[in-house]
Design a binder for these strands. Structure first.
Lengths: 170, 170
DNA sequence: GGTGTGAATGAGACTCATTCTCACTAACGT
DNA sequence: ACGTTAGTGAGAATGAGTCTCATTCACACC
């Protein structure tokens, strides 16, 4: 991992997060289970539920949003499981400026992508960029990082602005 | 103490944040004062102090770090003033995953730049990218945003990894 | 079929960064 | 001087996220 993550071949399913059909869901669960096992953790119903919700909404969501989609999980368990899933590389936490952190499926389980961040309502949305541009960015960042004695793992690129519900004040 | 000290205000901003010499400091204060005035706020000594600290450290810092550099300001005032300065576009808040938010001088007052984010200790460091690449990124992001009905204001590009004090676990 | 071991759960207490409240003071305009 | 408004500081309040702990579950091995 000298270089930033390239969206290169991994054994895991590199499928689009959106509109997950049953097949991709099965693959996803298998991949998640494998990751949990590797860390000596179990793929319990609660965790399964979280993963399934994240896969279905296909965008970064907060814990309250997850709960509202179906609150089968008490808050403390939900947070604990999100943390476990994060440590196992299944999901990633986006700390943003909104009140709550956002969670999404982690990169090897979904395609590399970035976010549109609404500065008004704090909501997040995925964007995909051209691979070539990604490579350019990675290359130049890697170079700049090296100069600063920094060991990169991955980059994140957010576009801040107003989502379609939050037109700039009018 | 009266008015801001620089009547000669040559177009101040656009300067590098690091190693601010006295001249740039004078310019900076003038620019900040102008912004505050525009919002009917005063450039009080406490605010001056915050701006000066941020200019001197030349990297995003947390409130405890600001205080440790010289705690002339009670916590509640510091937070309140940071908020005012943020609303006036003088500083920007970086919410990150660290315990504390980081603060830095806002973009029009310093050059456009990005951050190296240490995933281990949470510290931030500035990086500058090639203008051409920036333009490319902006162009493509703008296009993607338009497709999503999103009105962009600016982008942020972070490189996550390990700073030179926090080599990957060994 | 028991039984032991360690992970998982849920309820609630707790932490702690940040924000709010409020009484008070400093600055500016007239 | 006087009124009005912004700023101050101390402490209380808020609230997202974490921790504790008693209990339950899952699985292996007898």
């Amino acid at each position: 991992m000298g270089a930033p993550t390239s969206p290169s071949s991994r054994s895991a399913p590199g499928r689009r997060q959106a509109e997950a059909d049953d097949d991709t869901m099965v693959d996803l669960h298998a991949a998640v289970a494998r990751r949990l096992e590797r860390h000596d953790h179990r793929y319990t119903p609660g965790r399964r539920h979280l993963v399934e919700t994240l896969a279905r909404v296909a965008r970064p969501v907060t814990l309250p949003q997850i709960s509202s989609h179906s609150d089968e999980l008490p808050q403390s368990s939900a947070y604990r499981n999100l943390e476990v899933l994060e440590r196992c590389g299944v999901i990633s936490r986006i700390a943003g400026s909104a009140d709550h952190a956002h969670f999404e499926l982690a990169e090897p389980l979904v395609d590399h992508h970035h976010h549109l961040v609404c500065v008004s309502c704090g909501s997040l949305q995925d964007v995909h960029l051209d691979d070539e541009l990604e490579a350019l960015v990675d290359a130049e960042l890697a170079q700049a990082a090296a100069a600063a004695g920094f060991t990169p793992t991955n980059h994140s690129l957010d576009l801040h602005g107003y989502c379609h519900n939050c037109e700039p004040d009018r």
